[in-house]
């Protein structure tokens, strides 16, 4: 079945089983490999993308659901918030193994796009769905605060 949606600003048409999780369409069909597989049941957040501007676990999102929608992946992040988040991540060397951080960056970017100065509690709530087995959590918290300050100007 053909499904058309926008990925990172570009219209894409894929002909796949409509139940296919968006994650595997992005990866296997579109070769956007920044979005990762971690659990397949929306527990870890490694597959986080933005769907019409809000975070979405692509591993449990059938591609049929995104017909006509706008999907942004780590490869397509462009907002000032995204840039600030990524620079803050690099600035204090947040990643260790790095595998979860596409998802972490997607969640952190969405947080700052909706809340320019999050508290620790806001951060903990917004990032609760993203597991990091290297436990880089307190650098994540610190980097989000740094990004928020950068955006304040």
């Amino acid at each position: 079945m053909a499904i058309t949606f926008t990925v990172n600003g570009e219209e894409r048409r894929v002909d796949v089983d409509p139940d296919t999780p968006l994650l595997w369409v992005l990866r296997d069909e579109l070769r956007l490999t920044g979005t990762k597989f971690g659990c397949g049941i929306a527990q870890c957040g490694a597959c986080t993308v933005h769907l019409d501007g809000t975070t979405r676990r692509s591993c449990v999102t059938p591609v049929s659901m995104v017909e006509g929608a706008e999907v942004t992946t780590i490869e397509g992040l462009q907002s000032p918030e995204a840039r600030a988040v990524q620079d803050a991540w690099v600035g204090i060397d947040v990643p260790q193994c790095g595998y979860c951080h596409s998802g972490q960056v997607m969640s952190a970017t969405a947080l700052l796009e909706g809340n320019p100065s999050p508290s620790d509690q806001d951060i903990d709530e917004a990032m609760a769905g993203n597991i990091c087995r290297c436990a880089t959590y307190h650098r994540i918290r610190q980097a989000i605060h740094t990004a928020a300050k950068t955006l304040e100007g």
Binding site: R27, D28, R31, T33, G34, T35, K36, F37, T73, I74, E75, L77, Q86, W89, V90, D93, V94, P95, C97, G98, Y99, H101, S102, V105
Partner: peptide, 20 residues
């Protein structure tokens, strides 16, 4: 600064899963 922080923050770092 770590050599791999940028690639691991922008999705470009290549893991086995990413080999096609």
């Amino acid at each position: 600064p770590k050599v791999d922080s940028r690639a691991k923050s922008d999705g470009t770092a290549q893991f086995t899963l990413d080999v096609y």
